[in-house]
Every structure is written in structure tokens, then in C-alpha cells.
């Protein structure tokens, strides 16, 4: 769906801008600049403020990124459980470093804070779906699911 239609759907919802941002991000996997500017117009705030909202929440991204967002928890428990090795495996498999996206636009790699699943560390999420007790070997399988 076009971002204008998405924003229009939330135009009359109180606090609709954040809802609209979520919906746009689900569609595009990030918040395109034009979408933020359009949201500012629709919700009657300066673009500077809409941009402030878009950058305030770390969940939103204002930089274009791959469709499937793989996040790896970098909080202490996951770290101790070997998150480093998982990071290395992800980077190797996708041929990119953390914080970047693959050239084909399929995958993005990001760090996340504790996702509240510390019983099964290390944890990664793909598009918010969690995977537990991840090992370098499992990484290959998980990525294959989305190829």
C-alpha cells in the first residue's frame, strides 16, 4: 500500500501518527522521508517534530533497510551466552556487518536491547519473531527460511 493511504487511515485516530508509523514500517520496513513529511502535514505538526517522533523510538528506522529485519540482543545475558559468535555467523552468512542491509534489499542486521527471553539466550528476532538458544549452525537454517 502507498504510504499516503496508510497515513490517511490513521488521520482521525488520537495519537495516530505513531500508529501510522508502525503501519508504514510494517510495509516498507523503515520510515521513508516522504512518509514522515506527509504524516507531519496530515497530523498538523512541523516536519521537525514528526522527525523527532520517528527518531525517538529506536524501533523506528529512518534509514532504508532490508525487508527482513534480524535483530540480535546485545544485553548482558545474551552476550555471556555467546551472542558474539552468533553475530559473526550472521555477518558471514549475509556478507554484511551489523547495522547494514544486504544489497538485494532482503535482510537487515541490527542490535536490540533485551527482548525479555533471557531464559533461552542468545536470542535473535526476525521481523519480531523470536528464535531461542541460537547457535552459529542454527543461523544458517533461520536465514534459509526467509530466502
Amino acid at each position: 500500500m502507498d504510504y499516503k493511504n496508510i497515513i490517511a487511515k490513521f488521520a482521525d485516530v488520537p495519537g495516530g501518527m505513531i500508529e501510522a508509523f508502525h503501519a508504514i514500517q510494517d510495509e516498507f520496513s523503515y520510515l521513508p522521508e516522504e512518509a514522515i513529511i506527509e504524516a507531519a502535514k496530515v497530523f498538523g505538526v512541523p516536519a521537525a517534530d514528526a522527525y523527532g517522533v520517528a527518531t525517538f523510538y529506536s524501533y523506528f528506522s529512518v534509514k532504508s533497510r532490508g525487508k527482513n529485519i534480524i535483530r540480535i540482543c546485545e544485553s548482558a545475558p545474551c552476550h555471556i551466552a555467546g551472542a558474539d559468535e552468533v553475530v559473526a555467523a550472521l555477518e558471514r552468512e549475509l556478507g554484511i556487518t551489523m547495522g547494514n542491509s544486504t544489497a538485494d534489499g532482503r535482510f537487515a542486521l541490527e542490535f536490540a536491547q533485551c527482548v525479555g527471553q533471557c531464559q533461552a539466550t542468545p536470542v535473535i528476532t526476525v521481523n519480531s519473531k523470536p528464535y531461542f538458544d541460537v547457535t552459529p549452525a542454527k543461523v544458517v537454517e533461520i536465514i534459509a527460511e526467509y530466502k
Binding site: 522521508e33 514522515i36 513529511i37 512541523p46 516536519a47 521537525a48 517534530d49 522527525y51 523527532g52 527518531t55 525517538f56 529512518v62
Partner: peptide
């Protein structure tokens, strides 16, 4: 910029120790 001039060229980006005053869209 916002109240006196209604230009709104400046806003706050991000939060906490990462936050910064930036022109529109960073």
C-alpha cells in the same frame, strides 16, 4: 524558531545521551 518565528526548522532527534538538536529531517 518555533514559538517566536513559527518556522520550526529545528527539533530534537533521538533521545537520552544520543539526542541532539537538528534541522528538519536531521
Amino acid at each position: 524558531c518555533t514559538v517566536i518565528q513559527s518556522v520550526s526548522a529545528l527539533g530534537v532527534e533521538k533521545r537520552g545521551c544520543e539526542s541532539m538538536v537538528v534541522p528538519t529531517m536531521g
